[in-house]
Design a binder for these strands. Structure first.
Length: 812
RNA sequence: GCCGAAGUGGCGGAACUGGCAGACGCACAGGACUUAAAAUCCUGCGGCCCAUAAAGCCGUACCGGUUCGAUCCCGGUCUUCGGCACCA
């Protein structure tokens, strides 16, 4: 039967019936945890991106299975989130209804893809059985001081009507809807990811992750070494610390700047300047992120009327506020050294503040102000003449003795804001009581179930707040009437631990069994989009470390090895989107050619980690290739394998290609280089045809090679290979067969082509027996007729021979 | 502005650790089979030079360097993409 979706269906049914892809818990020693980032259940059918990620990672997993691994390959859904809720606002269809309907469709589709998922371990984050444990983790973090509430100016998306984490604000706009983000002062829940900033950095080097991704995390965490230095108020009534990386410029401080939001501002502002300061603070608050971030914008600020004392030289310097100082970084206070900092220079020039040079350039260096490089100190008391690097040390040491300064490391990373003023998410398991404050929901009362009957009026207030029977409850501590926290958790919280739940997804006693997941994790291969570099991947690492420190697991990192698939773009080279009208649906291609042809095309047509614009030119080629394989199998199946026949030159050549293919496919697929894997398979098919047309003297070799071909193809064309394997009389299933091994001896050809170069230019190619040493190669090369001619009248200076490759003759 | 990655035929893309650039395909051209077409099979296919071929020369964004030899290493330039962006 020629390959088509009929074959797909036939084998999907058989695989299902025979439980072929069931993970074997008893064989946990040989486990291999292969995971794709789970997906959001959107309404439409699987798109090319799903296929590219899931289909080809499945190919990798299938190869691993054939190599003897007990592959754990689960699948599930990141089911909470805004799209379902926005859809409900538009259409009135409840998020729960649309989400679960979508999940059913997607499960169906994923099954049709023919991937080796073990659905027994499915996880759906919106199931109460799952989010019960999301809430439990929240409580554990709270217990350990890693979840806390604070009032802070937070990112607010006016369109999504919710707050956002820093990671979800891209260029001052909402990552989801692209609208401008503003600041709001709100009391919100945060996770203390900053507690792990250093460890999150320290563990990066040993991870088998794309360097680019590690770099993104490194930048995002943003470690910065410097010092905190104490400035006293001139009137002695207050003091504050500044963070600086340039303690060497301390003698050049001519003013200090506080962030407008800094608490100190109220206390220190003098009556005379109060109204100006208030006005400025109002103005600063109203700006959108985009306005505030614009570096082209002129700096603004106002004087508070207060003065501070420079701890090294007693200088009295004015205290200003300006919104170029960020409240959330360091201490929210900055010492300004206009001579040696561009920002301060600009500000000082504008407001006519003094500029004092304390660093000179080394000999011959242009040190026109602002001079921001390291140099030699000047006008700095006993530090004059000392280098910047040295002075940074010495000045802080001196301050330290006086209790006025210390070394300090700051991180750019901020704590993770997890509250969301939306409905479709895991409720925050906290009760607010007038008497007792914020009281965690007792574990026995979990899950705090999301009520079904809720109004989704998007007005900035949590929908749950308007649901009387939900929001009103009693305080677990004192029993008096109290209110539930009206917010839900960021969906990234749900996805920060799902990989821990998969191996133990039915556990109703615990989130997961510690002993068991210590055996099952870490994930050995994790595959998903690069867009999660600074969000999901960072959060999941944080959760893993926090749970480890609480004793719930004993590994440090969740994902040992990470691969990002590339993006398949629209045919126009742009990202596929409905609004651009350049989306390509896999469905027609699949119904026409079968899912294996589609999958193989994805494998062959792109460099996996690069992706690229869609083009269907190559699909025909794969369909043609499938036909070639089918005809080959037809021939081979009719042959009597017991007829061995001779083993001569042709046989040796076929065997060479066969072993090259085994080696190539094994090594290339291992590192997700599927395009060259398919290329090696094509070469093998070409070689079989060549052998066939040359007379095919050895049936056994021919048949065995075809059997190997099918095994090599199986991961990439699972249905087709299973079918042809059966046709060849192979035992069910091809996926229970051993992955072929290459024979090194067969990779050595009798004769190899050796290049002869003259001064690095190729002049001749000669066939030589393989295995010759350098001297023998040189001898052969020098005797070659053409080479002899070329050497006439020249002196040989040197000969370089590379065994198996070339001889380079250097002449004058 | 800072940091990082990439740039290879008409196209998708190969090339292990510095050793024959362009594997495998697509497209195109020619041929075989066919009444014809489709399908299939075979051959060619970086550029220049050339009637053709041989031979030769050029060629991995650009300029230069190291080396017997550079797509690969080093310095500089350009372009594209990604990250960060008043983080003191």
């Amino acid at each position: 039967m020629a390959y088509s979706t009929k074959i797909d269906e036939k084998w999907q049914k058989k695989w299902e019936e025979t439980g072929l892809y069931k993970f074997v818990p008893e064989d946990v020693d040989k486990k291999l945890y292969c995971l794709e980032m789970f997906s959001y259940p959107s309404g439409a059918n699987l798109h090319i991106g799903h296929w590219y990620n899931y289909g080809l990672t499945d190919s990798w997993a299938r190869m691993k299975r054939m190599q003897g691994w007990n592959v754990f390959h689960p699948q599930g859904f990141d089911a909470f989130g805004l799209p379902a809720e926005n859809y409900a606002i538009q259409t009135g269809i409840h998020p729960m209804d649309s989400t679960y309907a979508n999940i059913r469709t997607m499960e169906e589709q994923l099954r049709k893809m023919g991937a080796s998922f073990d659905w027994d371990y499915e996880v759906i984050t919106s199931d109460p059985e799952y989010y019960k444990w999301t809430q439990w983790i929240f409580l554990k973090l709270y217990e350990h001081g890693l979840a806390y509430r604070k009032k802070a100016p937070v990112n607010w998306c006016p369109s999504c009507k919710t707050v956002l984490a820093n990671e979800q604000v891209v260029d001052g706009a909402c990552e989801r809807c692209k609208n401008e983000v503003t600041k709001k002062d709100l009391t919100q829940w945060f996770f203390k990811i900053t507690e792990y900033a250093q460890e999150l950095l320290d563990c990066l080097p040993q991870l088998d992750w794309p360097e680019k991704t590690k770099k993104i995390q490194q930048n995002w965490i943003g470690r910065s070494e410097g010092a905190e230095i104490v400035f006293e108020g001139a009137d002695g009534s207050f003091s504050f610390k500044v963070f600086t990386t340039r303690a060497d410029t301390l003698y050049g401080v001519t003013y200090v700047v506080l962030a407008p939001e800094n608490e100190l501002v109220d206390r220190i502002t003098s009556a005379e300047y109060r109204s100006a300061v208030e006005q400025y603070r109002e103005h600063a608050k109203k700006q959108t992120e985009i306005e505030r971030l614009s570096t082209a914008r002129e700096k603004t600020g106002v004087f508070t009327g207060a003065y501070a004392i420079n701890p090294v030289n007693g200088d009295k310097v004015p205290i200003w506020i300006a919104d170029y100082v960020l409240a959330g970084y360091g201490t929210g206070c900055v010492m300004a050294v206009p001579a040696h900092d561009e920002r301060d220079y600009e500000f000082a020039t504008k407001y006519k503040l003094p500029i004092k040079r304390v660093i000179k350039g080394e000999e011959g260096v242009d040190d026109a102000l602002p001079f921001i490089d390291d140099g030699i100190l000047t006008d700095s008391d006993e530090f004059t003449g000392v280098s910047s690097a040295q002075a940074r040390n010495d000045i802080v040491k001196k301050l330290n003795r006086q209790g006025k300064g210390e070394r300090k490391i700051n991180y750019r990373l901020r704590d993770w804001l997890v509250s969301r003023q939306r409905y479709w998410g895991a409720p925050i398991p906290v009760i607010h009581c007038d008497e007792c404050g914020a009281v965690p929901v007792p574990e026995k009362d979990l899950p705090v179930e999301l009520p079904y009957n809720v109004e989704f009026t998007p007005d900035g207030e949590s929908p749950l707040a308007k649901c009387e029977e939900y929001i009103n409850t009693t305080c677990p501590k004192c029993g008096k009437p109290a209110k539930r926290d009206p917010d839900t958790l960021d969906t990234f919280v749900c996805s920060s631990w799902y990989f821990l739940r998969y191996p133990d997804n039915r556990n109703s006693e615990k989130a997961f069994d510690t002993k068991w997941i210590n055996k099952m994790l870490p994930v050995d291969k994790y595959v998903g989009g690069a867009e999660h570099a600074a969000m999901h991947l960072l959060y999941a690492r944080f959760f893993t470390k926090a749970l480890r420190d609480m004793g719930y697991l004993d590994f440090d990192e969740p994902f040992l090895s990470l691969v990002h698939q590339g993006t398949i773009l629209g045919p126009d080279g742009n990202r596929m989107s409905k609004s651009r009208g350049n989306t390509i649906s896999p469905d027609d291609y699949i119904s026409e050619n079968g899912s294996d042809v589609f999958r193989m095309y994805l494998a062959f047509g792109f460099a996996y980690t690069e992706g690229g614009p869609w083009s269907d030119e190559g699909i025909k080629a794969i369909a043609r290739f499938v036909g070639r394989v089918e005809r080959l199998v037809e021939t081979a199946a009719a042959l009597d394998r017991s007829v061995e026949g001779e083993y001569g030159r042709e046989e040796k050549e076929l065997d060479f290609v066969r072993n090259t293919a085994i080696k190539g496919v094994t090594e290339d697929a291992e590192r997700f280089q599927f395009n060259t894997s398919i290329a090696r398979i094509m070469e093998l098919v070409n070689a079989l045809y060549k052998y066939e047309s040359a007379g095919r003297g050895n049936n056994r070799l021919f048949v065995d090679t075809v059997m190997d071909l099918l095994k090599l193809m199986a991961p990439f064309a699972p249905h087709l290979s299973e079918e042809l394997w059966e046709e060849m009389g192979g035992p069910y299933s091809i996926f229970n067969q051993k992955w072929p091994q290459w024979n090194e001896d067969a990779l050595v050809r009798d004769e190899v082509e050796i290049v002869v170069q003259l001064n690095g230019k190729i002049r001749e190619k000669i066939m030589l027996p393989s295995g010759l040493d350098k001297a023998q190669m040189e001898e052969h090369a020098m005797q070659n007729e053409k080479v002899v001619k070329l050497l006439e009248g020249r002196t040989v200076v040197k000969v370089i021979a590379v065994p198996g490759r070339l001889v380079n003759i250097v002449v004058k």
